[in-house]
Design a protein around this nucleic acid. Structure first.
Lengths: 192, 192
DNA sequence: TAACCCATGTAACCTGTTACATGATTAA
DNA sequence: TTAATCATGTAACAGGTTACATGGGTTA
């Protein structure tokens, strides 16, 4: 049920509307959790019925009205309890690696294009994460600062590692493609 | 629908029973995809009705009978089509980082215990992954070798990065705990 | 005037988890 | 004799995705 907890963690920093939360979990939590707006609205109404958040209606003149959600004492307690419970590792799931693993089935240029595209996406994510870290270090609350720093720094390291790996993978596939072009008996068009 | 594709990718190497697949997606695919046995049995029966795999009944004297699943030509084609379609990054989801981010809510020893425990789990996973890489490099099929190498090597890098990060995080939290013990006005028991 | 941003939701569907169910063989 | 391993499944539920729906204000 970590979506609920990620929402609560996000509301610790500042009260938000569902819309705010949906936009990449504004602020830092977006570095380690994602969810669609549908999921967030559903979860917020559950959290409200459970008393972990309260909604404040905000009427706006020029914009649609919105609901500002605030975390309650009960929400804090529930979050604390969850944090204190030991958990196992987050499940491994990565499409790109599955594709690459079976990559010998398809022509090399397709894989290379996919790797380039992923490299690009990781680079963008890395920039976002760096900006989020900056923003959080501006925060004058030294109690939360180093915790945020630790969490976001992992995300940054992970993206950096992705970029480096993409570069290596691209280099390897391009190299083997060239050497194949120069050879004279390529009877398997997708072998490295 | 990547579970189906991960199963097919796994069946490229060797035909398996549902039970075999469930045990960490025997062989390499387990480095980047996980699923419970219930999910796998459900998915295998769908793949069978779609004609992407065929089941061969194997009667065993001393063990329960089993079904060996083989990938079909249609399954291969379907896998190829999927690989060739551009995809976006796998979604970010990590409980531990959410916990750490809101870590100022709980006493430091709880976080430290959780970090130590995660470090241990990552170390175990790293060992498994290294063994899987070894096993795949023994494989004499040079066509699949470097693709497997690339995919698994990312998993190994990621686990290595986790270990290094855990060490840093533990060091930082332990250091700040010590300095707090020596100070004389710790009115916030969970601030670093 | 078309596209995008703000802002909230519903409904159907697919994916993943938890609990339940069975039953023989083998190693401690 | 207890627990683990092999081997397959069903059912109920929670989590996540896709599509649909609305409507005013702002920017190009």
């Amino acid at each position: 049920m970590a979506l609920a907890h990620a929402i609560l963690a996000s509301l610790l920093d500042a009260s938000c509307s569902g819309y705010d939360l949906a936009k990449q979990f504004d602020s830092a939590v977006g570095c380690f959790w994602e969810a669609s707006h549908q999921q967030i609205y559903r979860e917020l109404s559950r959290l409200e019925t459970d008393g972990h958040v309260v909604a404040e209606k905000v009427e706006q003149a020029t914009r649609p009205n919105k609901k500002l959600y605030h975390i309650t004492a009960s929400g804090r307690d529930w979050l604390k309890t969850w944090i204190a419970q030991p958990a196992s590792l987050s499940p491994l799931k990565d499409d790109l690696l599955v594709k690459l693993y079976a990559g010998h089935l398809v022509p090399r240029p397709i894989l290379l294009a996919e790797l380039h595209q992923h490299r690009q996406q990781h680079a963008e994510r890395l920039n976002q994460f760096r900006a989020r870290l900056e923003a959080h270090l501006q925060d004058d609350d030294s109690a939360t600062q180093s915790f945020a720093y630790l969490a976001i720094s992992h995300s940054i390291r992970a993206e950096t590692a992705w970029l480096a790996w993409c570069d290596d993978a691209i280099a390897l596939l391009e190299k083997s493609e060239k050497s194949r072009d120069q050879s004279d008996a390529p009877d398997n068009p997708s072998s490295p």
